[in-house]
Design a protein around this nucleic acid. Sequence first.
DNA 1: TATGATGAGTACGGTAACGTTTCGATGGAG
DNA 2: CTCCATCGAAACGTTACCGTACTCATCATA
Lengths: 189, 189
Amino acid sequence: MAGSQPISRGAGARRRVLAAALQVLDDDGLTGFTMEAVARRAGASKATLYRHWPTAGALLIDAMDATFQPLPVPDTGHVHSDVEHLLTSFVTLLEHTPFPRLLAAFIDAAERDPALADLHADLTRRRREPLLTVLARARDRGQLSTDLDPEILTDLLTAPLFYRRFVAHQPIPPQLVTEVIRHVLATRR
Amino acid sequence: MAGSQPISRGAGARRRVLAAALQVLDDDGLTGFTMEAVARRAGASKATLYRHWPTAGALLIDAMDATFQPLPVPDTGHVHSDVEHLLTSFVTLLEHTPFPRLLAAFIDAAERDPALADLHADLTRRRREPLLTVLARARDRGQLSTDLDPEILTDLLTAPLFYRRFVAHQPIPPQLVTEVIRHVLATRR
DNA sequence: TATGATGAGTACGGTAACGTTTCGATGGAG
DNA sequence: CTCCATCGAAACGTTACCGTACTCATCATA
């Protein structure tokens, strides 16, 4: 976006509040996510928050929606390396950004709030798109058997990375990406 | 910590409180998990809670620890059906018990409390054991190539089920277990 | 049956977030 | 330059949870 566009008074405060909301969620989790805490962090008035968002849940939705950024779609000509690029980028996201902690809080929230659950499902769908694009392209090129469902392949390829980070709560070993691809992408010898 | 037959006075209240703690966590998540709420639900006095647990975190740890129950280890003679039994049981756990909602809350809590993180890692390890047992037995029988790491296989087999439930937030299709096994356990036709 | 533990119920002062309101300051548009 | 929508700050009464303390009932056992 053209950064020199003047940021209107209202939009400026809005952006600061959204950024502060993510910081609070990252630091203190869902428990610490209150209107007061976000207002403090943003250097904003509570009145401003309530002017823009009726509830803390609505604010949370906007804040999480603002975090989304799709991974760039690689095009090396080979499924294998395309997928490897994507998964490696994703591991970086999991290990070196606030993303996973935000997601952990959000997953819990989405269990109990239907509006958050909807957004969560939508964000997940958008997050999967680059990988699905790569797989579809591979199928068009004949590099991938047509009896393999791209949706299930996407599950199988990305799930272990999530699992390591959120469930096993352990670092992701460097060879995991390679191993996952080897098992799932059917490079059978 | 007295006898085994009669439930000593103390142990009775303790069990009721732990059960109430899980109900509160299931219904209201981490946000609603307070000493007062648990005491109310248990029909117990706050003083009783504080007598047994110094903090809400300590109570949460004991409550989550009490939920753990290992899946029975099947022994059909074939890796394939053994694994299928285990994964199917696990899907039932994910779809028809409070387990996943409890876990969602716990994962968020474990992101910020080291003691909870330790317990989380330990519970995950114990949950994996039946599958690891089955895989080890298969290897001893020569039904499984020795160059496949059982730990990674366990990741690949269970991760998609977690993923569907927590990340994709979608029902687990009946054929997913079969598909996962087909891809991961290398029964290539 | 007498006694010591244990628990339920209640009350307490302290803290924090709630959601709303008022007021004075400020910056962008006409 | 003027106007006015928007902002930050502060105060408000309300509600909820905190952690502790005290009383009285109940059960376990010797």
